[in-house]
Design a protein around this nucleic acid. Structure first.
Lengths: 335, 335
DNA sequence: CTGAAAGCGCTAACAG
DNA sequence: CTGTTAGCGCTTTCAG
């Protein structure tokens, strides 16, 4: 059972391969009649187009590369699903690369995608490196690039971002409304825009409430569970505080574990708000108040933007996806 | 800045494209000298091999398709990482497809991969369909197929499975040792081998303890959180039971939520053991005793098996990956 | 509306 | 050790 090509179909039908190719592509310059004839014959012979041959000829492929830090994060796996939902029906294929938050792996992933002549790249940055020539390379090769969430605004191309500022602002407002005053912030890498914006939202809410944000109240690069635990330990030893707004759920988890270990009552004596609404957030005890990012929608938008780029219809726009605060136990009233 | 091909570098060097091709491929039939010459020139000119052209010519591609039910499950995302760890350094690329536990999407995913002429397919079945002609198609096209975890033993090719029987057996033995006697089972789809084996392990442990397993004690297709909650509700209303062994952590979670809602004490009055060690298992309250499957290792093994197939070295072997019981609070002593 | 012809970039016989 | 030749399967001018 050898493979069927358009030549086989052509021979069978007594036409030329060109006609078959056109017919299959739905070209209107070929008669309705032959188009149907070809389609039927193709079906009958079990023809399967060879994507690679077509791509080689066209110098373009229908495969889109998606580069993310890790796929086992709730946020990213939902973005992926959102991207798939749009891209697959449109006839594009997705190849997913994990960077593991490693700048070097990110460069390699992009290089590999480029070597494989993908039609476009959708990417969320791994870490703050300061080196973005791999992205510049993508742009200079005229390969459409869509960045999402963790973006570099200086690189050309579409960008889809979360409303980090509002998310953080809402979170801190909520803590203030529940009666907390000495609110510290466990931040991410402030060189990354997403985290910088969360910090700004925190600061804004605090200042509006007439509270000063001292440098000692901000713990940078504190996004892992361990970092959260450790930072909370230091915090309890060093200064007076009654709440923390964490830039991620994992550090919030660590913080809560530390507070529980020291016998601090949550909520009441201490309020905690996280960010991302990881699946465990609603299951932990106390359940974690957190900011939900609409990852699926973000994936949809990133994919749509990519398709627009591929069709040469748009570029260089930045879209903001709204977020919402999910109130749970960990941020209940201060007593 | 147009693209450099082997022809360009051949012309530059005054040799033929074939020589360049061979040199680049590390063929020993070309002199050490020219090989180095070519390599340097390629570097200098910024040559990037066109993977598609090579694949087209060879009729084979270095891309491996990976088909999983969902990537946001702890187990599967770790398998993916395990696969990547082996495949990427070996020069293969991975394209990941989610089926969302949908048989139709699984068929489509496989068809798409085949159409894209992937070098091989690694797959974990979505659901019990009874129709496996899409897998037969893979086999009949001589595309290497490696199944893992949720496999169909009747389809040719390598298989990597978890030791589901032992995992379940250990789990139930543990409950028995803690003093529980009326142990029911929230099972998955017993048409899928993985779940059937867990059921067998449960049954074996029960029978060894001289306890009969009545049909009323087995709740099939109870793997989601909602199903677990509901089944537990029914269980409490209908019959006497003091423990449940769940074929998944999500149903265990649902079960625990229901028990808590009814004021049943866990552990003590009721023991619960799950399966999979999802990240939330250690974070919930009470923390969940569960069976850890070594997903990463499984990914490694699946990838290695694939590479062996690709090299024509082996096929049709079944490998078993061991599992381990993680004891936490939910299965503490019966009182 | 269809055909002829050329070629995308690379590899693999077959010669020498 | 290297060159010649042919072609993977498809698309796309350019003619008619």
């Amino acid at each position: 059972m050898k493979k069927i090509t358009i030549n086989d179909i052509a021979k069978e039908l007594g036409v030329t391969p060109s006609t078959v190719s056109r017919a299959l592509a739905g070209n209107t310059r070929v008669s309705e009649k032959t188009r149907k004839l070809v389609a039927d014959k193709a079906q009958e012979m079990g023809y399967e187009p060879n994507v690679m041959a077509a791509s080689l000829r066209k110098g373009k492929s229908d495969t889109i590369g998606l580069v993310v830090p890790r796929i086992n994060r709730h946020f990213f796996s939902n973005v992926i699903s959102g991207v798939e939902e749009v891209l697959n029906p449109a006839g594009y294929n997705l190849v997913i690369c994990q960077t593991g938050e490693d700048a070097e792996k990110e460069r390699k992933a992009v290089a590999t995608l480029l070597r494989n002549r993908v039609g476009g790249i959708i990417l969320s940055l791994s870490v703050q490196t300061g080196l973005f020539d791999h992205l510049d390379e993508v742009v200079s090769r005229k390969v459409p690039l869509v960045q999402f969430d963790r973006i570099n605004p200086d690189v050309e191309g579409d960008k889809i971002v979360n409303d980090n500022f509002s998310g953080a602002y809402m979170a801190v407002r909520h803590l203030l409304e529940e009666g907390y005053r000495h609110i510290v912030h466990f931040a991410g890498d402030l060189g990354l825009r997403a985290y910088a914006e969360r910090f700004d939202g925190y600061k804004k809410a605090m200042e509006e409430a007439g509270l000063e944000v001292l440098p000692s109240m901000v713990f940078e690069n504190t996004i892992t569970r361990d970092a959260g635990y450790e930072a909370m330990g230091k915090l309890l030893a060093d200064q007076k505080a009654d709440a923390v707004f964490c830039a991620g759920d994992y550090s919030a988890l660590g913080a809560i574990e530390c507070l529980k270990a020291k016998g601090v009552k949550i909520p009441g004596d201490f309020g905690v708000v996280g960010y991302a609404n990881e699946p465990f957030a609603e299951l932990m005890y106390p359940s974690l108040t957190t900011v939900e990012q609409n990852a699926f929608v973000m994936g949809n938008k990133a994919a749509s933007a990519m398709i627009r780029c591929l069709e040469g219809k748009a570029f260089n726009m930045e879209e903001v996806v709204p977020v919402s605060l999910i109130k749970r136990e960990s941020s209940g009233k201060r007593r």
